[in-house]
């Protein structure tokens, strides 16, 4: 495993595009966090996002995990190109000739995926911890380290999404096509959702099984959980209750998809003549 990860790491380390994109990603990541802590002056009103309670432990785990997940698109580009460039440079062929098996090749890419997801998750944890320690009204140990399942959910969400990117990269061999397909899948899922909501409400359950939807189900939007929004909502509708927990079913479905994507990447590669 270490050997395969080091092979992939060596490729990424020496790839300029991957290096720059990853760097932008991690800078943006930190910048967004800093942005929230800036004070805005709207005339006489001082407004600071950080003062709205979003950085309170343990809510901050949920809030940050939900938000920075959008940035995963940056890394998606890196993942897709690290796969498709192996086709365009014919280095995949050379790797196999040099004695890497097709299974090892896919595994080394998957370890790359895990590496990216892990690095991003670690950063999320550290940045959130720092922001929380600065702005949170609560800093008891028990509270600080509660609700950490959101961090795990974030990790799984990235692994699932990157596995999908890996699969598209292997399937389509060109980064532009793969990213286009990703976009198409997103639109397709949107259409299915609309259809189910308005035409076939009894089929509701299948929505949870759509790949992108299942990933977004992992971390439910945190806005309505915010103090102000919540009190407004309960005033309008006294029965406003919603579960924000990370559901076991969602975890299992995303794990299932990740496995399917990586496994089919392998099978696909095995069947192909290069």
């Amino acid at each position: 495993m270490k050997r395969l990860f080091l092979i992939e790491f060596h490729k990424l380390k020496n790839n300029k595009a991957a290096k720059i994109l990853s760097l932008i990603y991690f800078i943006l990541f930190s910048a967004i966090a800093l942005f929230a802590s800036i004070k805005f002056n709207f005339g006489s009103i001082d407004f600071r996002l950080a003062d709205q309670g979003i950085f309170n432990f343990p809510f901050i785990w949920h809030f940050n995990a939900y938000f920075v997940a959008f940035l995963k698109l940056f890394l998606a580009v890196v993942i897709v190109s690290m796969v498709s460039s192996e086709y365009t440079n014919r280095t995949l062929k050379q790797n196999l000739i040099d004695g890497l098996s097709k299974k090892e090749f896919i595994l080394s890419k998957f370890y790359g995926v895990l590496g990216f997801a892990l690095a991003s998750t670690l950063l999320l944890f550290i940045v959130s911890l720092i922001l929380g320690l600065i702005f949170s009204d609560y800093d008891e140990f028990n509270i600080v380290f509660s609700d950490l399942e959101y961090i795990f959910a974030y990790f799984l969400k990235l692994v699932g999404f990157f596995s999908l990117c890996l699969f598209f990269g292997i399937l389509l061999k060109r980064s532009a096509f793969a990213l286009g397909f990703l976009f198409l899948l997103w639109i397709f899922e949107g259409i299915v959702q609309l259809f189910v909501k308005f035409q076939a409400e009894s089929l509701d359950f299948i929505l949870n099984f759509l790949p992108l939807q299942s990933m977004s189900n992992l971390i439910i939007e945190p806005f309505t959980r915010l103090g102000i929004v919540k009190s407004a909502a309960t005033q309008l509708n006294s029965e406003f209750t919603k579960s924000y927990d990370v559901e076991w079913s969602a975890i299992l479905i995303v794990m299932g998809w990740s496995f399917i994507f990586v496994y089919s990447s392998w099978k696909l590669l095995q069947k192909r003549d290069l």
Binding site: N14, N15, A17, N89, R90, K93, Q94, D98
Partner: peptide, 16 residues
């Protein structure tokens, strides 16, 4: 193949 050395068609390496 780890004990074999082979080049086929064009030389394939990572350009950067």
């Amino acid at each position: 193949l780890k004990k074999v050395g082979a080049i086929i068609e064009s030389p394939n390496f990572y350009p950067s």
